[in-house]
């Protein structure tokens, strides 16, 4: 790994560790390997959002050309959000792409991702299905996101109705996550979800 990238990451790692966000439990950062090329981030779901109470893991890969190119970051925890792919965890955030600036750090990037959870940008979606629901049925979107947070990120709000519907599909022999994706996609209409799964 290029010297400058490793030097920067070491320093940024220390910066994150000393930050008040870590002290407050907002973000966390861990090393995955000892050559500073791969890290694991963790952000807390922001309050007053459907993600509140959840803990979201992020995969951080540092390119050799860092900081001239942005780190590659994706959600490892499944999340229902217009700017995050529900399938791959890929994030649509300008600072991770063309708006990257060399003075940004892992700390500021993690905080930006956390801010993205509070303020989705449905006009620049990563997941068109989620974005459509966000725009057309915000209440249902809210519930779905809360449900996903409960199931995958350890959030507190269990949605009984959704759990029942997933269980119904589970009973038909459908994989649990597949069932949840289909139901979320078809606005929790059991029939359409079933139809799609069996066609």
């Amino acid at each position: 790994m290029a010297n400058i990238a490793a030097k920067r990451i070491k320093r940024e790692f220390k910066e994150v560790m000393k930050s008040e966000e870590v002290a407050g439990g907002d973000i966390k950062l861990e090393l995955v390997n000892d050559c500073w090329t791969e890290l694991q981030g963790e952000i807390a779901g922001p309050p007053d959002t459907p993600y509140e109470g959840g803990t979201f893991l992020l995969e951080i890969k540092v390119p050799e050309t860092y900081p001239f190119n942005p780190p590659k970051i994706r959600f490892m925890t499944k999340i229902w959000h217009p700017n995050v792919s529900s399938a791959t965890g890929a994030i649509c955030l300008d600072i991770l792409k063309d708006q990257w600036a060399a003075a940004l750090t892992l700390r500021t990037v993690l905080l930006s991702i956390q801010a993205l959870l509070s303020a989705a940008e449905p006009n620049d979606p990563q997941d068109a299905v989620v974005a459509k629901q966000y725009r057309e049925n915000p209440q249902l979107f809210n519930m779905t996101a809360r449900h996903w947070t409960n199931i995958y990120a350890g959030g507190p709000t269990s949605v009984w109705e959704f759990n029942q519907k997933v269980q119904r599909l589970l009973d038909m022999g459908i994989d649990e996550h597949q069932a949840r994706v289909a139901l979320s996609t078809y606005d929790w209409e059991l029939e359409r979800a079933t139809e799609q799964l069996f066609c």
Binding site: F68, A101, A102, A103
Partner: peptide, 17 residues
């Protein structure tokens, strides 16, 4: 060296763009 390398990729200030 750092700013020359950065500007060759993107003609902005790396701090405030």
């Amino acid at each position: 060296a750092c700013i020359t390398e950065w500007i060759s990729r993107q003609p902005t200030c790396p701090v405030d763009r």
